[in-house]
Design a protein around this nucleic acid. Sequence first.
DNA 1: AGAGGTTACGGGCAGCGTAAGGATC
DNA 2: GATCCTTACGCTGCCCGTAACCTCT
Lengths: 303, 303
Amino acid sequence: MTLEQLRTFLWVARLGGIRRAALQMNVSQPAVSNRIALLEADLGTPLLDRSRKGVSLTKQGVMLSNHAEQIMQSVERIRAEVVPPENMTALLRLGVAETIVQSWLPAFLGRLRATHPKVTFEISVDISRNLREHLFERTLDLALMMGPVSDYSVENVMLPQFEMAWFRPIDMPRPDLTRVPVISYHRDTRPYHELRTELQQRYGNGIQMFSSSSLSAGFEMVAAGLGVGVFPRTLGQRMQPGRIAEFDPGWMPTPLSFSASYIGHPRDALAAKAADLAREVAEEHARLRVASQTARQAFGAKD
Amino acid sequence: MTLEQLRTFLWVARLGGIRRAALQMNVSQPAVSNRIALLEADLGTPLLDRSRKGVSLTKQGVMLSNHAEQIMQSVERIRAEVVPPENMTALLRLGVAETIVQSWLPAFLGRLRATHPKVTFEISVDISRNLREHLFERTLDLALMMGPVSDYSVENVMLPQFEMAWFRPIDMPRPDLTRVPVISYHRDTRPYHELRTELQQRYGNGIQMFSSSSLSAGFEMVAAGLGVGVFPRTLGQRMQPGRIAEFDPGWMPTPLSFSASYIGHPRDALAAKAADLAREVAEEHARLRVASQTARQAFGAKD
DNA sequence: AGAGGTTACGGGCAGCGTAAGGATC
DNA sequence: GATCCTTACGCTGCCCGTAACCTCT
């Protein structure tokens, strides 16, 4: 019996197929077949029922999987507790929503890199819907996205919310929402849809909306006078300083709720640690923003 | 990280030396060295402190050993619960006191062989003192011996006691203990010493004792008229039928207490199972003996 | 026919034992 | 110098991937 055999067996059990496990583990399908065969020979009992399409566990297979899960949990704990963070060598496939990229992602990566210098990153920026999908496909280890993901298999660490604000071009003092386009997030995102619903309720169907999958492009459009924007307040403070200004049409969209989400089963200790660090950094960032915002408001009042 | 590395690490930790672990595991000493080195490289942290004679665990080593113990416990449970007994292939090094050999060992081996046909035995018959020693040296997996062994590392399953009885040659109606030798167990056993002390207290130093490391030889000596014997009652009933008889000099030695003892750490599931089976068989055997003895007494009374 | 699993087979490399080389008492 | 561990170095054998084969729907 080897850990590799047990790990392989668990993937076969979880995914319900040798083929799928092989794909997941980046090895050939016969290799997986062989590992299972060796494990069965070692234990002297069949573990898989190969009668139907794919495979299912035998009674012994079920018992084994329980104990094997325990073992893998202990292994994870070893990797998390015994290995000093600065010697952790791993790959963290990180999915990030653009709002995060534009706010505290650099700070987060810096901190993570400082404590875990040997961990390599693979960062993909995408809309939360796709990130969630990749998380389920297990092609992402951790997603910093609009959340939480309400699925039993996913662990969510809640992050500070982002308050939304209206932005106008600096030379458009009193925008009329029924006449200028409203620019916001990508069409397939939740804030876009909430905004659209709200706008329709308030102003009817005449509202024109532009969506941008790039936040900086969205801000650029506002700055260029193409329309008004609905974006997180903290982003507006630095994306186009001097070219845009906040305004208040009388109502605000609901704040954006974010989470650091990762698959809980099998648990990835690094992802869990990184998620906690993300919360830490994000909360610091939120405090700083509030402080600087207060300062700015104070300054603005004087101005 | 492999199970073999963890298992090796635990032996090194337990025995406090790479050399000792290698000896225990029947591999070369550099092989153990290398396994530890690989494990340390994998975890990116030293696990052993090699400054002094032998080795001691670092802080990380202690943490690892806790988790590794957990893992090995799970592995043991797999071997015990998932593997069907009839497919268990293992070596059970069994140490047996001769009293057991002469009473229920055959029945025990038969039952064990029936439930665990693929387990091979290595049986050594010796006096309990030596069996205990070999248990500590880990050259025995299970000892059926006079017990219990009062050491924190040893698990004891208590077995039925053996009542002692006095035996005389059939043609020596009223033996005089001050004039005929008393024959019993080997000189280095507890019953021999208890008997000797008791005899000295009752009859003074004039008593002559013969000891035999072989029970059948002891009985043979009694049958041949060399002296009287003190042996378990149930054995006398069949060792020399017709040539010896019980008699009562007015007092009886204390019964012999037996146990099935095995090392509890690391736990050997097969040894534990076998110990339970031993208790079962021994208790059945005791019940049968009592029954046949009652029958015989009834017959004797009629005779 | 195609999806999913097993068997067959050559090749690479992980890990073993032997033997020699430090370090520490 | 004795004891204990590490390093060096061939060699074996395990396990992988490729390819062909089997077996269901």
